[in-house]
């Protein structure tokens, strides 16, 4: 069975599972932020439930609580998603690079909590190893 080849689109082609989902997200300084757990898609007219009648685009990367439902099934309550707006994405390669600092994003709140409450309080926790 030989299917006709697709036309060659002008931009970079990304298959979601192959190139985006579960990729490491790095911030502008190269610090790991999270992995891509899901993508939020809207119609270009802003509709939340697009179909083929109008183009749709990725508006945000999602991370955090979405992991549990991806492993065990179900749909996460939307209040628990952490969004990273596509506006912040600077490059997509073997990692997804952001143009902002990870500390400014909601998704890193657990990292900041552990740093401020535990690790940062232990002696030497804020110094370079050496």
């Amino acid at each position: 069975m030989n299917l006709p080849p697709d036309e060659h689109p002008p931009g970079l082609v990304l298959d979601a599972r192959l190139h985006l989902l579960d990729r490491q997200v790095l911030d502008v300084d190269g610090v790991p932020v999270c992995t891509v757990d899901d993508l939020e898609v809207h119609g270009v007219d802003g509709s939340d439930l697009p179909d083929g009648s109008r183009p749709a685009v990725v508006t945000s990367l999602l991370s955090g609580a979405v992991l549990a439902t991806r492993v065990f099934g179900g749909r996460p309550p939307s209040s628990r998603w952490h969004r990273i707006r596509w506006t912040h994405v600077a490059d997509v390669g073997t990692t997804v690079a952001l143009g902002v600092r990870g500390d400014t994003l909601d998704v890193t709140w657990t990292e900041r909590w552990v740093r401020d409450r535990v690790i940062g309080r232990l002696p030497g926790g804020r110094h370079d190893p050496g």
Partner: peptide
Amino acid sequence: MGWSWGKFRRPAQ
């Protein structure tokens, strides 16, 4: 999990 890791960073990082 995609967390920040590595001994080259300060523990707080």
